[in-house]
Nucleic acid binder design. Structure first.
Lengths: 224, 224
DNA sequence: GTCTATATGGCGATAGAC
DNA sequence: GTCTATCGCCATATAGAC
């Protein structure tokens, strides 16, 4: 099927280069067809790009986003998010790179695309309340939320951004080494996030986040 | 002076867009001069780009890189690296973005550029020995080194990569908010790195997948 | 040094043959 | 549906006037 073939090629090229640096020639070559055939299926570069961009956001958001609405401690949510995102990103290692390029090129559009899918997230205001309560913060938890998500995404996405360098420097371009490396990282990310939550918790409040040891989950994402 | 002006403009444009997406027109406009004047100072786009690329690597490496050679505990080195890199990156917030784009476009060239400056780093082999000793690892500390640097750079660089989104979502585009946010993060990064070092020294008992070989994608995320 | 003018090539997009 | 041919435009790069 030519159309699927085109979308697959376009995704490969756009995710690696972003809108500006990618050319229709690149995509046609990747798909093994002529440039004009692209225009037969997608009137112009922008149409094709929007299809890929929408698909990338749709892929990134909903599978794991509702996890934040579960009625479990913060740290357990973090564990579920780590496992969910890890399997997602191992399937599509260029997704972080694509978002970083496009976030810089045009933040408003990308942020708006995510906002349009707010319904597929859990309730953010509820999450903020949970954060405020568990960390003993009085009032607004916006800043804490920013720290948590920045740290979590940093730990999850950055290795994929640096993958070409890691492959070159540490893994001798062995394609399996990176996956093994990321599986090992699972064991470090959650403890580091626990440390973050404890560091943010208000010092006077002696009530630590949760003394209860979180139950370790297997790799699997939530079963549909 | 026109030449400084050109370099300044070229840096601004290349760091934001990378080699492929940047145009000489962009740079000329940023510098407030004509396209041809660029060619007077720099024969072609590639020459100008190399000047910027070399400058970026030179800026990134030497200021802090010799810190790894000091005779102090690992965690104290981490503290010094955090402070060094933070002030460096706050001065040049687009540096991480540039490296990420160029690492994906052509890893070999960039990695080689860093290797050419090995002399300005401390002795890596000595650092590896320290890691092996402090963490109680027998034999090769390569993997531990990869985890440490990936985590450290993730915590330091990722917020700058996500800055346009953070500005939009959390900071209402207030230019001072991001800097304050990063200053606050200093207090979290070092404790998190301490947790990483401890986790690597004594692998968490809760871990399951350590012996198993990578359980592979339990749920198919997207298969076109 | 800095400009205008221009050569050359690649890119996005369309027309038209089959 | 898929191709070849082609158009208009923009980008890189150079020539030449001042």
């Amino acid at each position: 099927m030519t159309e699927k073939n085109i979308l697959h090629a376009a995704k490969a090229v756009f995710l690696r280069k972003g809108l500006d640096a990618a050319t229709m020639q690149d995509i046609a070559a990747e798909a093994g067809i002529s440039r004009t055939l692209l225009h037969y299926y997608y009137r112009n570069k922008d149409t094709l790009f929007r299809a890929i961009l929408d698909g990338a956001v749709a892929e990134f958001v909903p599978k794991v986003a509702m996890l934040i609405d579960l009625d479990i401690p913060l740290l357990e949510k973090v564990e579920l998010l780590v496992d969910g995102y890890l399997s997602l990103l191992l399937d599509d290692p260029l997704l972080p790179h694509f978002f970083i390029i496009e976030i810089e090129r045009d933040p408003r559009v990308l942020v708006q695309l995510f906002r349009d899918r707010r319904g597929e997230f859990g309730e953010i205001s509820r999450l903020k309340k949970q954060i405020a309560k568990e960390l003993g913060i009085s009032g607004d938890a916006d800043l804490a939320l920013a720290h948590i998500f920045t740290s979590l995404y940093a730990m999850l996405m950055f290795p994929f951004l640096a993958k070409p360098a890691l492959d070159e420097v540490f893994f001798a371009r062995d394609p399996e080494a990176f996956r093994a490396f990321m599986m090992e990282r699972r064991n470090y990310i959650v403890p580091m996030m626990r440390t973050l939550l404890r560091s943010m918790a208000r010092p006077p409040a002696r009530t630590k986040t949760k003394t209860k040891r979180a139950v370790r989950r297997p790799v699997s994402v939530s079963k549909p």
